[in-house]
Design a protein around this nucleic acid. Sequence first.
DNA 1: TAGGACCGAGCAAGCGTTTGGGCAAGTAGG
DNA 2: CCTACTTGCCCAAACGCTTGCTCGGTCCTA
Lengths: 201, 201
Amino acid sequence: MTTTKKAAPPSERRTHLIRLAADLFAEKGFRATTVREIADAAGILSGSLYHHFDSKESIGDEILREFLDDVVGGYRSAVAGTDDPRVAIERMVRFSTAALSRHRAALTMLQNDWAYFSAQKRFAYLRTAMREIEQTWIDQLERGKRDGQFRADLDARLIYRLLRDILWIPTSWKQSRGKSWKTDEIVDGLLRLLFDGINAR
Amino acid sequence: MTTTKKAAPPSERRTHLIRLAADLFAEKGFRATTVREIADAAGILSGSLYHHFDSKESIGDEILREFLDDVVGGYRSAVAGTDDPRVAIERMVRFSTAALSRHRAALTMLQNDWAYFSAQKRFAYLRTAMREIEQTWIDQLERGKRDGQFRADLDARLIYRLLRDILWIPTSWKQSRGKSWKTDEIVDGLLRLLFDGINAR
DNA sequence: TAGGACCGAGCAAGCGTTTGGGCAAGTAGG
DNA sequence: CCTACTTGCCCAAACGCTTGCTCGGTCCTA
């Protein structure tokens, strides 16, 4: 026996089911979504899901992995091409908003059910990836301080923490009734706020 | 029969139980916390809780009401004393961070279980209060624009949305391992970021 | 005729809640 | 001072329902 029991053969149907599940996770969170709801969305019975997945957690696992791979890869290439921290940060901000809207489900899951996931060994890679992401941000902020481009009294870690959480805020606005902003408007407003603040002059 | 069945007599024990429940809600959210966990924390059986409350929702209701009363009242008196929008906003920011750390449970509940609560008539006051809060912020921001104190191209509603979510971010950092910031550091960093951005000069 | 996709029915565990009763501390009445 | 009754708090056991998941069998397609 050299193979694992169920290594996740990526059939077309399976991929579609994950997308359906992700849509539900994006709105209600992971724990608050039931397997029966997922099955309903797919037009099958809940038990039939287990022909494709060996557990509900496996679905969540795949969604989270895809998200983190995307983000980590994007950040690496964002800082690769330049040594101007302001440029790098703007790239990271723009990439983040795009990536986050691509992975709304992962975001909601991390926000609502972080305690649930991070407590399991199976999801240890969450912490690993988060650490690399944090380091990338801090490196750029510190570099900007040394260059004299950013304020010298800046607490890089504090700013990172704020930014990290700020960046994924607009993602949760998608279905807000009334006027809604385009992604460009949001990211521009955000960048302006980040670099210059709200003061005139 | 002229009185309601169970109008919530505020006994001492009852108040204590609410506090215990709030601590759990603050860490796991409302739906993810079970009545048995609350009872365990109090050293009693789950059924015994129903001597004090008629439902789990009633506990949540009381926590949310207290929070919103606090915030709405605080904002009213924050804008009352001055007609300088920059002063008013700084007051609101400082008051918010204080209030939010006083009501961590309510915050987590609104963040994790907003869809659950806002769908029920019983919690209609949530939307009402939120609307007043939003209007208060927007009024001050618009006033600052007219004064020429804030950038004229500022989207007040967008900035409010960002601020609202940004402000309650640090509250979720309470038990972050490693270095943790004092509330003053956070709010100062936040105010600096808000007004001036991260750029030098 | 073999295999992938699904059904139908059900399981154990966990959920919020109900019910009936026990036990101690107070408060009258004789 | 003893008794009877109320009141506040809690236990023990269970209810009906939902949860994630299992399993044998059936259908369709190739």
